[in-house]
Design a protein around this nucleic acid. Sequence first.
DNA 1: GCCAACGTTGGC
DNA 2: GCCAACGTTGGC
Length: 142
Amino acid sequence: MAYWLIKSEPSAYAWEQLVKDKKTSWTGVRNAQASINLKAMKIGDRCFFYHSNEGKEIVGIAEVVKAAYPDPTDEEGKSVTVDVKAVEPVERFVTLAEIKAEPKLRDFGLVRQSRLSVVPVSDEQWKLIMKMSAAAKKPAGK
DNA sequence: GCCAACGTTGGC
DNA sequence: GCCAACGTTGGC
């Protein structure tokens, strides 16, 4: 299974909203690279849910429940969307500042391409961030 | 097909 | 609110 990070401005669609809705269609992605990432998503893939602009932190974990299909909100029919559901909130928010402060996450898509709204997350990155989100201030161990 | 102009996103 | 980065558009 693959891992991803999906971004949303809380004012547009916050994590709390997804929790309330249980699941949602991740529509409105127009960026070409982001679309490619969406198409690569498979059912069961996990996604970090990141709040951009406000908060700038990873707040929860979502799961892909429906693979890419044409985005109904795109009149041109070029864009795709996936359905995701809320899995669980993270124990502790992981902020962008912390991610930037972690040398191992220097190559993280969120940092490297800050404008991309759907970015891939490697296994190692996923594990590390999971660790960072688990209560302690710093990742346990080395 | 290239490149400049413009628009949008997102961090600070 | 400002500015930098980057994607997209349109003229040539």
